[in-house]
Design a protein around this nucleic acid. Structure first.
Length: 602
DNA sequence: CGTATTTGACCCGCGC
DNA sequence: GCGCGGGTCAAATACG
């Protein structure tokens, strides 16, 4: 499939992907874009997505071998024998290097590294005579050179116009997304206000869905909170989280949804609690920067019960088991030669061990984007196929995320939420796998994800290694297939490094339109504190179950725009997934590029 | 010199 | 109780 060129919308500030077999580029081209974010780039501000992504090309130059200025914007269509797409960024600059290829056959294996939005940005047919150096050395004849340069200049201008047009399209898209977000936010605030005025209404609705629950269990219902806010500071978030944690110990109908607007300048924030409190292993503390309060609030699941002194002993045992089971994980399998996939977050390696049954070491990382962020991940290569990188996430970020990280974070959150609701409480969730996947891709028989039933922790596996069918994921014998009825932005898949983000974007848009949200109701009777997915629309909070999934399916399938977006996304995935799309440059977002292949202990 | 990584030691849960 | 394996800590080391 050939989308040619495109931009990632939710990944790196600047991302370009290329399909090297672009019909428009038989010879190939060389594009280098650099942006400088050192001045005022605020990664947490979604508005800067626009700044970061839609401002090229700024300048064109020909015949140069390399560009080093962090502020330079350069497009070089004349470099030869290059067939990679290099995407990288660090805290101050982002460079995108798309190198040209003279041989299509040679170009194919290493094409794209990132997922695009559904609008391909078609880059120019590179100039056919690019095999020859176009650098003006001052010696060649003026006539031929001028003619050729005029032709090149004209071509570049055409391409510039195309890019500008594409730029405008993307801006429009972003504007639309922003508007949708604002509308949803307003809707949510209005709903909250209404709920506060009439707390009994929500309570009644809630009561209908939780009749089976005991009053004791209701006390442990957790508030689903999902990051919808890119703005607030990490400190604010932590305060909000900890305080909300206290409140949610005794949930009342008024706070089924916790709105952090009072502390976050009116912005919405909903986060599934248990995930943000979870850890790969609960026993010991790490670092000294976490308060005893936060420690007691879930890092060690065994301590959760301590907060319920009135809980009977048997209840405590049960909750302890639940806490263990709540340690949901989201595993992403992606082909990558890189030591770690780029998910937009900053990670610090804190350990490495040899895992049984796998000759490759397992590296342990924790998020360092905010002090005390509970999110951790494990990175390990697949024993059977070392080209497959398995990244397992656990926890929920307690801080604003840069756009590049939103996709993965929301995906893991959604997957974990889905897992904990569907796998543990909703037979529908388990018995109706693929519902959304099939709705999305009627022709696909397989699901987008699998749930491991044998793993020590409930784990959702997103297998992005299947090339023939981007949504054809492996199905280990002990795993069930499940769809992702998650939060609006939580449908996104992440691969190495940003392959299918358009997928998430499309789903995000769609789910906004359809009012998809999380439900805290489903499975609460079994999940206790676990935040639950929910359909949240027009003040209703129906249960997430078969009906919810059906509604989501219907909503998704009903929107032709969404279908088109998905088609584009899938096409992009197909076009890019065949390559080990992890060739990156200047990729300093992950400061642990040399994380693997060190000696190990145990 | 500050920060990130490495790596041996330790903790914990679990099975026997 | 013991051993095993997974997960984490933290001092040592590497690195920019």
């Amino acid at each position: 499939m050939d989308k040619g060129w495109g931009l990632t919308l939710a990944s790196d500030p600047v991302s370009v992907f290329s399909s090297n077999n672009s019909n428009n580029s038989p010879v190939g081209s060389f594009l280098k874009v650099k942006r400088d974010f050192s001045s005022d780039h605020n990664m947490a501000d979604s508005r800067n997505i626009n700044n970061g992504m839609f401002q090229f090309p700024v300048s064109l130059s020909a015949g140069k071998e390399e560009v080093s200025s962090a502020a330079a914007h350069e497009v070089d269509f004349f470099k030869e024998k290059i067939n990679r797409v290099d995407i990288g960024h660090d805290s101050k600059s982002t460079s995108v290097t798309v190198k040209k290829e003279n041989s299509l056959a040679e170009a194919a294996p290493r094409s794209s590294a990132a997922l695009d939005v559904n609008t391909g940005l078609h880059l120019p047919t590179a100039n056919a005579r690019s095999d020859q150096s176009t650098v003006d050395d001052g010696v060649s004849s003026d006539g031929d050179d001028r003619r050729s340069k005029n032709v090149e200049l004209a071509q570049l201008q055409v391409e510039l116009q195309k890019m500008n047009a594409e730029n405008q399209r993307l801006k429009d898209m972003l504007s639309q997304v922003t508007n949708n977000y604002s509308a949803l936010q307003m809707h949510f605030v209005a709903l909250i206000q209404q709920q506060q005025r009439n707390p009994g209404v929500e309570s009644d609705k809630k009561q209908e869905t939780v009749d089976a629950k005991s009053s004791e269990e209701k006390k442990h219902e957790m508030v689903p909170r999902q990051f919808m806010d890119l703005g607030p500071s990490a400190e604010t978030d932590e305060i909000s989280n900890s305080s909300s944690e206290e409140r949610t110990r005794s949930v009342t109908p008024q706070n089924h949804f916790e709105v952090a607007s009072t502390k976050n300048n009116g912005k919405l924030e909903m986060v599934p609690h248990d995930q943000e409190n979870s850890s790969f292993r609960g026993g010991k503390r790490f670092g000294g920067d976490e308060s005893p309060e936060s420690e007691s609030q879930g890092w060690n699941p065994n301590k959760v019960q301590k907060l319920n002194p009135a809980t009977p002993a048997n209840k405590a045992i049960e909750q302890s088991a639940e806490a263990t089971m709540r340690k949901a994980r989201v595993s992403v399998r992606a082909r990558s030669e890189a030591p770690m996939i780029s998910d937009g977050c900053q990670w610090r390696k804190y350990g490495q061990k040899m895992a049984k049954g796998n000759p490759c070491p397992r590296a342990y990382y924790r998020c360092t984007m905010a002090v005390g962020c509970p999110v951790r991940k494990q990175v390990q290569r697949c024993a059977e196929d070392k080209t497959i990188l398995i990244t397992t996430y656990e926890g929920n970020h307690n801080h604003p995320l840069p756009p590049a990280a939103m996709t993965m974070a929301s995906t893991t959150t959604a997957a974990a939420t889905m897992l904990l609701s569907g796998s543990m409480s909703s037979a529908d969730g388990m018995m109706n796998p693929n519902l959304l996947a099939r709705a999305i891709l009627p022709g696909c028989s397989s699901s987008m994800a699998t749930i491991s039933a044998s793993a020590p922790f409930p784990t959702v596996t997103l297998d992005l290694t299947q090339n023939t069918n981007p949504l054809q994921f492996q199905k280990p014998p002990t795993q069930f297939q499940v769809p992702f009825p998650g939060q609006p932005q939580n449908f996104a898949l992440v691969t190495a490094p940003q392959l299918p983000q358009v997928f998430g974007q499309a789903l995000y848009n769609q789910s906004e339109f359809s009012g998809l949200q999380l439900s805290q109701d489903i499975g609460s009777s079994q999940l206790g504190h676990q935040a639950q997915p929910q359909i949240f629309h027009s003040g209703q909070q129906p249960s997430l179950s078969h009906d919810t999934l059906s509604a989501a399916t219907a909503a998704i399938t009903a929107d032709p725009n969404f279908t088109a977006a998905l088609a584009a996304a899938i096409s992009s995935i197909i076009g890019g997934a065949n390559s080990n799309s992890t060739t990156t440059t200047n990729n300093n977002n992950n400061s642990n590029s040399n994380a693997t292949n060190t000696s190990n202990r145990n």
